[in-house]
């Protein structure tokens, strides 16, 4: 006796999940059951990422924590300290953790800066040793890392084409529904509308901007991307978008480039990555590897 198996057709499946205080969009190509299982895997990965790297997390010995610490340390060293996960004390001091925003006194900043610097952390017998007063802020890298892990899980599930967009930390692979590269609109940091369109395949993107979280006092904007050397929000840029193979690296490099005056030396160490920088006057520049990017007419 012959059994005819009726295989459901593959198609595009879209789902929005709520993690990292933002909406995470998935668009996956596969059979319905395959995509349902894949989505559950992404939920598991994102829940685990939140549990390990949220501001309240205290796990200092999980393999994932040690792995991300090593990645963060590499970018810290490569960027001369511009990207630093020990800025947690500054995030607290400026009120970004408690939403009690304020400009700290110089004496408070001096005190806080004594607790900033990744060299204060040591790794001993599979555990991170953090001195009292030092506070980790994984915000500049964890979301990208979660996206990379979710991507790996989806690859293992056999999802051949799709994208994950976790509030701007994005990874796309395969082809879009029109069998072309994925077209990603990059929002303008100040004006309504888009700055331009990226056309990407098998690539990650992350953006750091002074418009994402900020408060204003006497007309001055104080945002959440701190220069670890001064303790003040980094000056000179409105947004930095980094494009390259891994979302965690894009995420960390976007923060580092936001802080640095010149991104060229850093991106020489990351030849597969490129950045689109909008400075504080709104002027656009490109650093490092070039990716297909088309400007939008009405941003002129």
């Amino acid at each position: 006796m012959l059994f005819a198996a009726c295989r459901p057709h593959s198609g595009w499946h879209e789902v929005s999940l709520l993690y990292f205080d933002t909406i995470c969009d998935l668009k996956l190509y596969g059979q319905p059951e395959e995509c349902r299982v894949a989505t559950e895997k992404v939920r598991e990965v994102f829940s685990r990422t939140e549990a390990l790297f949220s501001p309240q997390a205290s796990d200092l010995h999980s393999p994932e924590v040690l792995e991300l610490y090593q990645t963060a340390k590499k970018v810290y060293l490569d960027s001369g300290g511009a990207f630093d996960i020990t800025v947690g004390v500054l995030t607290d001091l400026w009120g970004f953790s408690s939403q009690t925003y304020r400009v700290p006194k110089p004496s408070e900043l001096r005190q806080a800066l004594m607790m900033v610097g990744l060299e204060k952390i040591t790794e001993r017998q599979g555990e991170l040793i953090i001195p009292a007063g030092v506070k980790l802020d994984w915000g500049g890298i964890a979301k990208g890392w979660g996206v990379d892990k979710a991507f790996s899980a989806l690859q293992k599930q056999g999802i051949k084409s799709g994208f994950i967009n976790a509030g701007g930390d994005l990874r796309c692979w395969g082809q879009n529904p029109e069998r072309r590269a994925w077209r990603i609109g990059l929002k303008h940091p100040r004006q309504p509308g888009f700055l331009g369109v990226l056309e990407l395949a098998d690539t990650a993107v992350a953006t750091s901007g002074d418009y994402q979280r900020y408060f204003e006092v006497d007309g001055v904007r104080y945002h959440h991307i701190f220069d670890p050397k001064t303790g003040f929000p980094a000056q000179g840029k409105q947004s930095v978008t980094v494009i390259g193979p891994e979302a965690a690296i894009c995420d960390a490099l976007a923060t580092a480039i936001f802080v640095l005056d010149d991104a060229t030396p850093l991106l020489r160490l990351y030849p597969d990555y490129g950045a689109i920088v909008v400075n504080s006057e709104g002027a656009l520049s490109f650093v490092g590897k070039t990716f297909p990017f088309s400007l939008i007419a009405d941003s002129r």
Binding site: D25, K27, N165, C172, T207, S239
Partner: peptide, 8 residues
Amino acid sequence: TWLDAVIG
């Protein structure tokens, strides 16, 4: 729209 996703 000709965009697949929006970031920034």
